[in-house]
Structure formats: structure tokens, C-alpha cells
Design a protein around this nucleic acid. Structure first.
Lengths: 194, 194
DNA sequence: CTAGGGCCTTGCACTCAGTGCAAGCGATCC
DNA sequence: GGATCGCTTGCACTGAGTGCAAGGCCCTAG
């Protein structure tokens, strides 16, 4: 039989994330203390802070594996020449992975108004990855990459806020597609000679 | 001669905002405590929290007068039939008012990475006002108003982050114009029969 | 087998943000 | 003159977040 084994770093991370998600879904963000989460995950309060810098981070920080997949997705994305269309393609794929259980909790927390800053928190790392991708695609353009990533983030955010968390996850993806389709981001004057 | 007079509520508000802005500009957000701010504004710590729910709020909450002007701006905005164009018009005006001294501090704070959530904080109330306006313009459309406001906010945010706070404020307005011009938000399928 | 070094956990103590409560103070209204 | 209302303030408390140092587990070198 297998020896009692120390949990790996990722396992502890996931236990904390899991506990946070569950407790917050049950009681709301404010009503859950870090001590509660740590106890529920079978670690100490101090260890919690070794993994997450803030309580909110335990809710929103990207799962390392998911982050890696996103990294790969942007790295392998096609270049059709139309940056915005390619970006939409990336988003369309990404939006169908998401940890939808987490998304539902995010929506609940968002609706309760407990976290004024939730909308970005949720998408910050996604938007950062998109911006990095756009920067590779538009070297020399300062505004463009930020604008592209922000516009995509805005579309995803609007879809997210419109989504009814009680409805199937596919509905969120559909809303995101629609939102992305309604937005268009064109090249700047400086780069239209490309 | 005038009698010694109790400061009006707005005056106290402004004293606290002013003190926060100045101290944060000097020492950074984290290095300034609420006690410091309260003392600098000539009030008590407890009074600070009677005016602002959080330390960040003292930095970012909209000046009541400015909020009113924004309210009026959206109320009186023209309706040319092209929602996005009208929205761009509103933003173009707004972007030339801003308390640019505050904006410069925001950029500094933003650059230092102390406030992960700054970008929204800065624009939250603006975006909310734009969304309210868009909702009046597009009744019955759930996604549309959020998308319009978020897209405009994204453009403003991208311009803001690209702006060099050492350059004149007009440069920020120019960047905002450019960003807004590069983005286009179209009507949804459901509303294209309007 | 043992000694040591690295990584992770944990407890302790501390600062600071944010809140409820109740007392105080000035102005206003009968 | 007394009741009331709004604002301020002090006090005490919870909980987030951090630095520090001690202890435990594992792996490796001798």
C-alpha cells in the first residue's frame, strides 16, 4: 500500500482554492475568514498566506495548470493578419474551458456587491496574457496591444455580467461570442501601412 | 469679520481627498496610513471613515461636483442615432475636464503596482454613468449597454495606461480620442431592426 | 547510519484597515 | 430652556496581512 504522503505544493494550493470556493459560495465573501478557509483546507492560517497574498487571491488567482494552458493557447494561435479576429478566436476557445463552477461563485460574489473590484480580478490574468500576445503581434505599437486586450476583456466582462449563473455554461460562451462580435478594434493610423 | 465657521461637509471631504492625494503622491499608497491622512486633514481617524469606506476610496471616489457635471453631461448628450458615436462624444468632452493632478497621482500609484485594482477603481463611477446613459438609449437590450460602457472604459483605460504622466494632460486626451476611434461597437442582431 | 542543508509548515507577535457603540458638542426648532 | 438632529471623536474589537524564528520532513553527502 502507498505510504502516507505529504501533499504536493499544487495539492495544497488546490485544497485552499477549493475550500475558499466552497465556503464563499455558502456564506459569502465577507462572512468567511482566512482562519475558516485554512482550517477547512487542513492547514494553518500562516500557510494560507504562504500560498496567497490576500483572501481575494485565494478566490481569483489562476490555477497554475489553467494558466499554462492559456499560455499555450496564445502561443499556438494562428496569425491570419487580422489581429482582432485572431484575438476573438482565442477568446472563443478560452471561454469554453473556464472552471465554470468557479465562475458561478464569482457571479454570486459579484452580484452581492461585496467585492467592488471583482470584475478585473477575475479577468486580470487573462487580460494580461492577451496583452502579451497582442504585444508580440504588434511590436512597436504602444496603445494597440493594451487596447485590444482591454476591449476583449471588456467584452468578456460584459458577457459575464449579463450571464445568468443559473443557466448552463454554454450560455456564457454564447454571450461572450456575441459581445466579441459586436466589438471591432481597428489598427492605428501608424500601423495601417502594414 | 467672519465668525469662526465649522467646515461644511464638502469642505471636509475635499480636505481629506486633498491630504490623501498629496501624501500618496509623496510616499506611495502603502506607506500612508489612514491616521496620517486624518491628521493631515485636521480630523480624526474615525471621521475619515465617516467620509470614506476605505483608504482607496479617499483616493478614487468621485468628487461630488464632478460627478454632478458628468451626470449633466450624459443627460444633455445629443442623440444622433449612432450610439457608439454619441458615447465617444461624451468621452471626448469628459476626458478634457478630469482632475489631471489626481490622474497623475493615479498613474504613479498604478505604475508602482501597489493597487492591483486601480484601473477599475479610477473609472468605475465613470463607467457606471456611461452604462446608465447607454441603458436609457437602448432599453430592452441587456448586453448592449454593458458592452458599450465597458468598451469605452477599456479605451479610456488603455489610453490612461499609455499616457506618460509627465506629459501634458492634453496628450492624455489625444490618446483617449485615438483609442476610442480605433474601437467600434455595433448593434446586436436583436436590435438591428430598430 | 548520521550529519547537514533546503523546503515547507507553524506559532507568535505586531501593524493597520475597518466597524459598532456611545458620549460629547454645536446649531436649530419649538 | 429643553429636546432634537447631525457631526465628531474616543474606545474597543475583529480580521487581514507580515516578519521572524523554531521545528519537522526529506534528500544527499560523508
Amino acid at each position: 500500500m502507498t505510504q502516507a504522503r505529504h501533499p504536493t505544493r499544487l495539492e495544497t494550493w488546490r485544497a485552499l482554492r477549493e475550500a475558499t470556493l466552497r465556503l464563499v459560495a455558502e456564506h459569502g465573501f465577507a462572512a468567511v475568514s482566512v482562519d475558516d478557509v485554512a482550517a477547512a483546507a487542513g492547514t494553518s492560517r500562516r500557510t494560507f498566506f504562504n500560498y496567497f497574498p490576500t483572501k481575494a487571491a485565494a478566490l481569483f488567482d489562476p490555477d497554475p495548470e489553467l494558466a499554462q494552458r492559456l499560455e499555450r493557447l496564445t502561443a499556438e494561435a494562428p496569425d491570419t493578419g487580422d489581429v482582432w479576429a485572431d484575438l476573438r478566436g482565442i477568446c472563443a476557445v478560452f471561454v469554453r474551458w473556464g472552471p465554470h463552477d468557479a465562475l458561478r461563485v464569482y457571479r454570486r460574489v459579484a452580484g452581492s456587491g461585496e467585492l467592488g473590484d471583482y470584475p478585473v480580478e477575475v479577468h486580470r490574468h487573462v487580460q494580461a496574457a492577451l496583452e502579451a500576445w497582442a504585444t508580440r503581434r504588434l511590436p512597436g505599437d504602444e496603445l494597440g496591444p493594451r487596447l485590444l486586450a482591454a476591449a476583449a476583456g471588456a467584452a468578456l466582462g460584459a458577457a459575464f455580467r449579463t450571464w445568468d449563473p443559473a443557466s448552463p455554461a454554454e450560455e456564457f460562451a454564447r454571450l461572450a461570442d456575441e459581445a466579441l462580435a459586436r466589438v471591432r478594434v481597428g489598427p492605428g493610423r501608424a500601423t495601417e501601412d502594414t
